[in-house]
Amino acid sequence: MAKTHVTMKVNGAEVEGLVEPRTLLVHFIRENLALTGTHIGCETTHCGACTIDIDGMSVKSCTMFAVQAQGSDIMTIEGVANADGSLSALQEGFRMMHGLQCGFCTPGMILRAQRLLKENPAPTEAEIRMGISGNFCRCTGYQNIVRAIQYAAAKINGVEFQEAAE
């Protein structure tokens, strides 16, 4: 199958590559660009481990072809940290609140949470749970992920993080 030339912006840098039309975007990112922080956990668009940010949308990159991303602006987990290399508020929140264990769902979860907070800077717990319902985690039971996102929201909004009473 003839290959197609694609160009896109990934984590602020222009990238290009030759792909088959059927090349899944997640494989282009992981194998052509060697950005292996984006993971694959299923092939049926359920688990969300492959979630990235494309043109302001959270997208499961296992369900999109690389050719479809021509000209788009993508952020993967490798582009999330602050410019000075320090952890972003969400990354810090996940660490402080023990929002991860094996780490496999974490990149997708953080990318999704980042878009959620951009659209809804002060979500309720129910909104957070709904907002991350396209991402499976097998380790944490989600409770500390919710706290991690609340921590980040508070930090971004410049307010003190207060844990909800049980």
Partner: peptide
């Protein structure tokens, strides 16, 4: 319908 990521696409 589905989940947030799916609803974007």
């Amino acid at each position: 319908i589905a989940d947030p990521q799916v609803r974007y696409r």
